[in-house]
């Protein structure tokens, strides 16, 4: 990686922005009384539909999924904002985004008035996942983030 300060600041901002997105998704679900992924899962139409329907079919598995999702989103968000264990959490973020992507894969009709945008193959989940993949490789938290202390304990 080139040692260019503006590039590093830009990458750090990208990481924080994605972290913010995850963190707010987690916190928002946490403070929303009665939030559940049930409807989202029930209406999913992608290749993972049967898995999602199976989750919904059992109340305790659904509850477990709800809590896991909140914890995962919040933790990933927090870690990305503060730059701790960046490489681990970028991969965790990519996995979650893949689960979202395949719940409503944008492979269908060109015109869909019920969604807030129009996508073909590539959607915001995929772009965010690609950005996380780049962050994984740059590993900028080693310099701008708490990972700096992990890698330079005595410095």
């Amino acid at each position: 990686m080139r040692n260019n300060k503006s590039e590093k600041i830009a990458l750090t901002l990208l990481r924080i922005a994605i972290g913010w997105l995850f963190f707010h998704e987690g916190i928002n679900k946490l403070i929303t009384e009665g939030w559940t992924a049930k409807m989202y899962l029930l209406q999913s139409n992608g290749p993972l539909q049967s898995l999602y329907h199976w989750i919904v079919s059992n109340e305790s598995i659904l509850q477990f999924t709800n809590y896991s999702l909140i914890v995962a989103l919040t933790l990933i968000g927090l870690a990305l904002i503060i730059g701790l264990y960046e490489r681990f959490f970028t991969i965790a973020g990519i996995i979650i985004l893949a689960l979202f992507y395949f719940a409503y894969p944008p492979w269908g009709e060109l015109i869909n008035n019920h969604t807030e945008g129009n996508y073909l193959l590539v959607d915001k989940n995929m772009i965010t996942a690609c950005a996380l993949l780049a962050l994984f490789h740059f590993n900028i938290a080693k310099e701008f983030g708490l990972d700096r202390f992990r890698f330079k304990p005595n410095n």
């Binding site: 750090t12 972290g19 913010w20 990305l80 904002i81 503060i82 701008f144 983030g145 708490l146 330079k152």
Partner: peptide, 16 residues
Amino acid sequence: RDLLKGLAGVPFLGAY
């Protein structure tokens, strides 16, 4: 400098 760089993300958490 190390401290500031390491804690770069923390103010954003506060802002959030």
